[in-house]
């Protein structure tokens, strides 16, 4: 197990280093100068030059990369060009929205998908299965931003139960915060739940056909007991993989939903920073996301080992 852990950690570090190089190079190549963007159309060349040197943009590429990467290692994310505040503070503020939103959406999608997937698998071919399959097809096909607009029209504009968007802030209490995240979380969760339900169902069906399931039933377990005690655990590997991918997506991929609900989350920060060529913010946030994705994958790998003892033993 220790060997397995060390190997995984090693590849984790290598991935991060390569990713930092790629992120930096790609962003360097993108045309557009942050200083000219900030100063607009009437700015004089010497003003732009003054701002460039103030922002440290007049240094060479490798020098800036080294500065950035040594800063990152020490936990210093640099200072935003446009906002003139430390990137770390900005990211921390945004994470207080993006992370709860991602967890909320993941919770909703799991709470929907697990029962629905199990139900469909245990009634294979029946009307229950067909209903779930049709609904999930719909859930995958409907774009979530459009669904979000429908939610806003119904619950915010017509019924007035929620505000149309924005974030109330956690200082107003947990409930107020969760309330402003509810519609966005539902919009994010539905397509994810649809995918997860299908994965759950097909993975369970695969397992149900295995020999050990026949043995379990032969031992005298009911369909239901066999499913919950034996099949579910064995069907979890593909489900966990998808959940890991979905969680990474939820942290970074909520850009559109955050725009629809004007939530000041991480996705919107990246979106704004790219448009404003706030390169240091883009670089640092993308690196942070790479780190998050790599960490989630790492944790999911550990979870595999937990649900499937064979993976642990193989590497001993």
């Amino acid at each position: 197990m220790l060997h397995y852990l060390l190997r995984r950690l090693g590849s984790l570090l290598a991935t991060l280093l390569v990713a930092s190089l790629i992120v930096f190079l790609v962003i360097e190549v993108v045309p557009g100068d942050p200083a000219s963007y900030m100063l607009g159309m009437n700015a004089q060349p010497d003003t732009v030059a003054a701002l460039r040197s103030e922002l440290g943009l007049d240094k060479s590429g490798p020098a800036r990369y080294l500065e950035w990467i040594t800063g990152l290692v020490q936990g210093d994310f640099g200072q935003s060009y446009t906002y003139r505040t430390p990137v770390a503070d900005m990211v921390a503020d945004r994470l207080w929205i993006s992370l709860p939103l991602a967890l909320y959406a993941l919770f909703l999608s799991t709470a929907l998908a697990f029962p629905a997937g199990i139900w469909a698998a245990s009634h294979r071919g029946g009307p229950a299965d067909t209903t779930v399959m049709v609904l999930t097809q719909l859930g995958i096909a409907v774009p979530n931003f459009w669904f979000a607009l429908l939610l806003v029209m119904l619950f915010a504009v017509n019924l007035g139960w929620f505000s149309a968007g924005g974030f109330a802030g956690w200082e107003g209490g947990l409930l107020a915060g969760l309330k402003s995240l509810t519609l966005p979380a539902i919009s994010l969760a539905l397509p994810q739940a649809a995918i997860l339900t299908r994965v759950m169902r097909s993975s369970l069906l695969d397992v149900l056909g295995e020999d050990f399931m026949r043995t379990a039933r032969a031992k005298g377990l009911s369909e239901r007991q066999a499913l919950l005690r034996h099949a579910l655990r064995n069907a979890m590997i593909p489900v966990l993989t998808i959940m890991g991918l979905q969680f990474s997506f939820l942290i970074a991929g909520a850009i559109i939903i955050e725009n629809v609900f004007f939530l000041p989350g991480l996705g919107r920060l990246i979106f704004q920073s790219i448009a404003q060529r706030d390169l240091i913010v883009v670089e640092s946030v993308v690196m942070l996301l790479v780190f998050a994705v790599v960490m989630v994958t790492f944790l999911i790998d550990l979870a595999y080992a937990w649900v499937d003892p064979r993976l642990r033993q193989k590497r001993r």
Partner: peptide, 17 residues
């Protein structure tokens, strides 16, 4: 309040935000 999406601006006005 900063709302960049035109559709979101429309619903925010209608919802009284």
């Amino acid at each position: 309040k900063f709302i960049s999406e035109p559709t979101a601006a429309y619903s925010a006005i209608l919802a009284g935000d």
